[in-house]
Write a protein that binds this DNA or RNA. Sequence first.
DNA 1: GTTACTTGTTAGTGAGTAGTAACATGCCAG
DNA 2: CTGGCATGTTACTACTCACTAACAAGTAAC
Lengths: 193, 193
Amino acid sequence: MATVSKKMTADERRAQILAVAAEEFALGGLHGTSTETIARRAEITQAYVFRLFGSKKALFIQVVQRAFEQLTGAMREAAGDRTGLEALSAMGLTYDSLLGDRTALLLQLQGFAAASEPEVRDAVRDSFARMWGTVADTTGLEPVTVKSFLAFGMLLNNSAALELRDVDEPWALGVRTRIQPGLFTHITSETNQ
Amino acid sequence: MATVSKKMTADERRAQILAVAAEEFALGGLHGTSTETIARRAEITQAYVFRLFGSKKALFIQVVQRAFEQLTGAMREAAGDRTGLEALSAMGLTYDSLLGDRTALLLQLQGFAAASEPEVRDAVRDSFARMWGTVADTTGLEPVTVKSFLAFGMLLNNSAALELRDVDEPWALGVRTRIQPGLFTHITSETNQ
DNA sequence: GTTACTTGTTAGTGAGTAGTAACATGCCAG
DNA sequence: CTGGCATGTTACTACTCACTAACAAGTAAC
């Protein structure tokens, strides 16, 4: 038999479901993905998904949170001991490199898009706050600079959704233009602080 | 009788449905909004929505396109005869002022989020390209500057989704920090062009 | 090898879904 | 005032959905 079909521990199964659900939710979002689809890809019954996660929304929130944590963790790691603009530069390169695996970027986007559900909104607020905090703390730079950095990240999420990699037009090239992080700090806020 | 219930022309009805659908799709997205909901709010039967728009996806695409056009048009109008940074500054103020009416911003977001559907993706690519073109043409500034400007726009969309207006924490204040557009041009691309 | 427990399935519910076809209603031109 | 057309509804289909309860199967300890 090709299918081994042994029993997993609940934790292993949860991890597997989270992985599958991440890919599906990234494309379909909260409402465009069915628990049946996720269950089928994990080769279990749909009922068991509910036993392990309680509800579809709860699963979605976990998946989105993990995506944020993955990105935030990767940036913190990339910065290492560096601070200031050097840290920001390292973070930027990491974030860019994640274009290869669009999943985490799309999950951020789906999190924002589903934020009209209060529980999702609260979770995403929290995750985004942590991401902001990480960038602010490790770089030690001004809020405006952090804002600029994250703004480019949000644009990157959207260009991942549009698959701009495949578009060869001037505007799409413009969106893909790399930013030189050394000059981030020249953006200043109106209220000089 | 309180309800007048006269017949409208198809064009009037279409306009009414588009208005209602905009509000609903802005919150629920393509898959989180039912045609039944839209029809009920427009006080017609759900079947008639299909007669006028063909499919839910077609209606969604029209709604998203109009949201992009609304924003793009408002920016072009705000710029007026101005060019360069003055035009960009005027545009930025307009975009910001739209935070009051979150609908158009959220619809952009929902358009990106539903872009795994090829028809949606193509439509949003097109709309976004037009927005890029408008900013690039009216300001005449470098691609990197246009990119920065639009990146802040994308962040604004997301902060509208999270209702950051209601959040009174440092990071949320940071996200709301206004950018001084005069210093946009100090962001440069890595590949000096 | 039986007990106790965890992992998993079967089978179903009730509600909601996008989309269709056939019919009704109001309105205007002649 | 009537014929024809545009506006709208009724009634339905075939299906999918999230979620539940009750039961089965594997596994580890003793």
